[in-house]
Design a protein around this nucleic acid. Structure first.
Length: 108
DNA sequence: ACTTTGACTTGCA
DNA sequence: ATGCAAGCCAAAG
């Protein structure tokens, strides 16, 4: 594994630290890691997670800047992601999470 | 080794 | 306010 795995690890830790019923965005994670512009890499990190058996990492709590579940299509079914969030008490604003209530910013 | 794409974000028109 | 283009870094073709 390349050194970028370290980046993945930090993303994983951050995502694990997301409180129950809260969500965060790729941009905030990237910013917390000092890579504000590299928000795409956060997605790659989660992709690696999804490909592995890292079910301990709530990737469904990570959304894009608009609160949309951009990664839902990468799940087995695009519905499971929203179902899980709703199961945690997360409210939705149409097809996006109500960030005004559930947005959580990592404590880097 | 080069090109294309991707779970994003920001900026300018 | 909406739409298109660029920037970013890494992985897959």
């Amino acid at each position: 594994m390349p050194e970028s795995a370290d980046f993945f690890l930090r993303v994983h830790e951050l995502v694990k630290q997301i409180p129950f019923g809260k969500v965060t965005t790729y941009g905030h994670i990237a910013a917390a890691l000092g890579a504000r512009s590299s928000s795409r890499m956060v997605g790659w990190a989660l992709n690696a997670v999804a490909h592995a058996d890292r079910f301990d990492i709530p990737c469904h709590r990570v959304v894009n800047r608009l609160g949309e579940l951009s990664g839902k299509m990468h799940f087995e079914t695009p519905f499971v992601m929203r179902e899980r969030l709703e199961a945690e008490g997360v409210t939705f604003k149409g097809d996006a999470v109500d960030l005004a209530v559930h947005l959580w910013i990592p404590d880097a």
